[in-house]
Design a protein around this nucleic acid. Structure first.
Lengths: 358, 358
DNA sequence: TGCGTATATGACACCGATGTCATGACATCG
DNA sequence: CGATGTCATGACATCGGTGTCATATACGCA
């Protein structure tokens, strides 16, 4: 590879002048500049980031560690939202003229120390620590020596974190269902020990309360197990109990569960959305868009979380975070309405009457 | 950060001796070694990869460019198999003591030049160029100056490439179906201009021929459009035509299509697999495992492709590729059999008769 | 004309590793 | 006992940029 010395020689100037042309940090004569640029072009010159990093003591690298935390989830498909997170973060980081260094542990937690060591050697300026689902984590000690932002997870030390707004997402979904005329809203939930379960249940209850609907506990049933075991019987029973409470719509804890519920409802001869509406959570487009009918789902805003986390990290690195900036930031996503939810007649009437009123 | 000079001072030796302790390239007295190691530990020292790269002229970096090629697919969810590719490649690359530098264009082709420039500046030793689906690509000129392996794509210049064995995958699936007693096998295909379409059709036909079954063109219908437009009518019509040819099983071009076909078949009152069996392609576990019943699918072996491509690239870099190594390597995946395919009675009879025979 | 100032450029050192070569202390051998 | 070899270690240069400081020329103004 050509170096700055090669360029300098070709252009008949000193290396420092070439440097000035690249960085524009001091005036350079127009003719000199042209000669240097011609030399750079003809030699196909790229400056060495290693040399720059060494001199400037800034690597220009941001580390992201993914697939990292669980020791068990190599047995399960996490749904791969990480790629969206990566894209969101990458966009922001590229704007700051830095490069994202991604380390994916492939779900093997014992690889993490080696990955962190790599980060240290590359002198990453900050770290994005990504969990595969909303959870609490304990941070490795050797992550504490540089700026870090947790994504989709949090710890007990108020380390800066970016989290999905599960409460708000479920609220928006259920509130939207009510606005569309549903009043008996089934809810097949996540396992109770999951963080997201509690938050979403709160969102569900708040939406009912806001709209003056009484909570019926028979409508809310746990639909999944913490371990991806054979959950099918559980889901079948849970659905059975929910259906006995006569819902007009069933909210599922995630799109995968909704996909299963599609099958179960059809086995019972119920047509979606004619006989019953269904909603999911996550908005995995691979599922939600391709199910028939399209699945209404509250979006887990992974791309936005990635971008927000990168932004927060860059401010931490620059030391310019706002004084009022909270350690934990919630990111909300929209509800994507598709055909799996059918407005109930009473709404339509309601809306049309309204329209007359105004 | 502590440097090798800090460690040397703390241990009372020269920097070069510290270097020797780290690299073991020359004998070091046992006591000295211990002193140095203690100093390294107490200073929490990590060697600077920038300095090493500069001195050794080897960056230890491999670049991977993903989501790169299409200008349009930001509108569509590609199914995100890239993360598996990354994991497969990362595993192999980590073993060679290198680091994977990933650049994801987020589907915006105009970002690629900037990403490649970043790779050049970081002096990546080789590049993995990943396409989002099996296709032909034209390579940017500035990728030609270092080792490169194409993944999931190929060009006209015999650039080394790693590709999925679409023909073999479809063959194995259809052959397996026949072994399970199916003889009338519907096939809803990809758009005809896709590379995978032709290959899989060949695999389908070969499986029939191998088993002495005549090809019935009514059983093979295009089920998807090249652009993710409203494909629904197309799929409906295609399915309709296939069903009129009385298949006992329907092969879908991918798992997304299979997911839709589940819905369409059920609308027609057909139960899977009792009335008709269904198979997919890709084995997206997020879909295949969670559909009810579980979807039989031929696996697109992304993790294996990533590993194979990394391996090939490392050999290219080392200059040790085998002389007989073909430019294009096919990677086969298994067929994952799940409950969406029901063996036909005649097989069972057939098998049991056989068993008596032998 | 002489001096201050802005413009344009170069010499040199330095960032943190490591390859090369030199050196000193012992051990071994003829 | 001196020559030779091995072991252990250090001095110094180098990789490719850039910060600092010096220098040279041109220009404006008293």
């Amino acid at each position: 590879m050509a170096t700055i010395y090669d360029v300098a020689k070709a252009a008949g100037v000193s290396p420092k002048t070439v440097s000035r042309v690249m960085n524009g940090d001091a005036p350079v004569n127009e003719k000199t500049r042209e000669a240097v640029e011609a030399a750079m072009a003809s030699l196909n010159y790229s400056p060495s980031s290693a040399a720059r990093a060494m001199r400037s003591q800034r690597s220009g690298l941001i580390g992201m560690i993914t697939g990292a935390i669980s020791t068990t989830h190599q047995f399960e498909d996490t749904g791969l939202p990480e790629i969206y997170l990566v894209q969101g973060a990458q966009r922001v980081i590229a704007q700051s003229n830095r490069t994202l260094l991604i380390a994916d542990s492939g779900g093997q937690a014992d690889r993490i120390p080696a990955l962190l060591q790599t980060f240290r050697e590359h002198r990453v300026e900050g770290v994005l620590y990504v969990a595969e689902y909303h959870r609490e984590v304990g941070l490795p000690a050797n992550l504490r020596d540089r700026p870090i932002v947790l994504v989709n997870c949090f710890d007990t030390d108020d380390t800066p974190a970016v989290l999905p707004d599960d409460e708000g997402g479920q609220f928006a979904l259920v509130d939207g269902l009510i606005k569309r005329g549903h009043r008996r809203i089934g809810f097949l939930t996540l396992p109770e020990q999951q963080i997201a379960h509690g938050l979403r249940a709160e969102g569900y209850v708040r939406a009912l309360k806001t709209n003056g609907i009484e909570f019926d506990e028979r409508l809310m049933q746990v639909g999944a197990l913490p371990i991806p075991a054979n959950e099918f019987d559980l889901l079948w029973d849970a659905l059975d109990r929910v259906l006995r409470a006569e819902p007009t719509v069933i909210c599922c804890a995630n799109d995968k569960m909704a996909m299963r519920v599609y099958g179960l409802l059809r086995e019972r001869g119920l047509a979606i959305p004619r006989d019953i509406s269904v909603a999911g959570y996550d908005d995995y487009r691979m599922i939600a868009e391709h199910l028939h009918p399209g699945l209404t789902s509250a979006q887990l805003p992974y791309a936005a979380m990635g971008a927000r986390a990168a932004d927060k990290l860059l401010r931490l690195i620059a030391g310019t975070q706002r004084p009022d900036e909270p350690a934990h930031e919630l990111v909300s996503g929209p509800v994507v309405w598709r055909d799996s939810v059918q407005p109930r007649d009473n709404t339509i009437t309601h809306l049309s009457t309204r329209r007359k009123d105004t």
